[in-house]
Amino acid sequence: MASALKTYGTLIGFVLVVLFFWIEIPDTFMTAKNWLNISQQVSMLAVVAFTMTVVMVMGDFDLSVGSMASLAGIVAALAFRDGHGVWVGVALALVIGLLGGLLNGALVAYVGILPFVATLGTLTVYSGLAFLVSGGKTIFGRDIPTAFSGFARSGLRLGESVSLPSLTIVAALVLLIVWFVLEQTTFGRRLYAIGGNKEAARLAGIRVRRLRFLAFGLSGFGAAAAGLMYASRVASANPTQGSGLMLDAIAAVFLGMTMSEEGEPHVLATLVGVLILGVLGNGLTQMSIDSYVREVLIGSIIVLAVAASSIGKAKG
């Protein structure tokens, strides 16, 4: 019983937060429309957090995801401005994301730099590149094709006034793919083995370097996808717009990790972490509570959740 509570404490906390908002905002919170809204609002963070989970499974971090998201948006917008089609811009941005991620992977796995340091370095490089190629300006207006900005406003109609947003569908697909890769393939099991003990994994014949290299590639690719989603949602690209994603993504993964007996990240748990962040933002706005309260609450919840689960572990 106690161990179930320890594992599910964060989930129960999430449910209680939802119940709290349901009671306080009875008319509008617990509606399909609002939840579809929330799903769309968290979709960009979700994609970054899901792919961040892949590297955090190995005990690594990728601090460069926020600036990669910005860079990807800028690259696509510049391609649009030069008259290329939507798919060319999107493909170019995703390739940049993959290459940037693989560069992180190479620095970490083959050069042997600590992920914290390597990705802190590339964070600065990617951010600088975003400023460099854009000239520091926001690209918006006629330069952004309506087919691109329209994507974030489109969706699958579910009824009269509700539709499943396209951004939500993208996030759900990424969730499905990451879940499959991590939980259902040997690739995923090996990543968890690396996270458990790198040396043991290597001695057991796992090609640790190559797997870390590839995992970082996935994280960069996800960051670029999120950057494109962001650019589509705001119909513009700005060299700093993705920078808020990185810390929130790491926070979401940490919140999720408190739900695992071993303290391992799992992508479905990351989803709960993402939803906690999203629901707090949505509910507190609807209750007209100061937006800075959200920051204080989220920080406190992370510390409390992690503290509770580690106290429980120390006793057990």
């Binding site: 429309k33 960009m44 949602r233 705001v234 513009s236 933002g281 949505n282 609807q286 007209s288 937006s291």
Partner: peptide, 15 residues
């Protein structure tokens, strides 16, 4: 965060 402005506008509409 400009995308968050969109989110908060949606919330204001719901509210």
């Amino acid at each position: 965060d400009v995308a968050a402005v969109i989110s908060r506008l949606e919330d204001a509409a719901t509210q």
